[in-house]
Amino acid sequence: MVTPAHFIALAVILFVIGAVGVLVRRNAIVVFMCVELMLNAANLAFVTFARMHGNLDGQIIAFFVMVVAAAEVVVGLAILTSIFRARRSASVDDANLMKY
């Protein structure tokens, strides 16, 4: 029997995987994909809760989030591409001129 609680647990797991991925991956694109994974975990939670509460808000929010995520991709890729062109490296660890 799959209950909404299972879906929420899955959402939490996806969220944590995304968060840990941000920490452990060096490639900027992959880091960003991990953030996207976190957003989608939230989407899953929204849809599940919409089902639990029996209203449509959560599903509509999920659509909004997708649009926002798409916009974020546009901006993010622009930034990451320009930094890749300048440095010939997509590693987030290479960009640490500013510190302390």
Partner: peptide, 16 residues
């Protein structure tokens, strides 16, 4: 973006 994800997940929790 990382912090937005936290924000959004928080919204999901409160919605739930």
């Amino acid at each position: 973006a990382f912090s937005s994800a936290f924000f959004l997940f928080g919204v999901a929790m409160l919605y739930g």
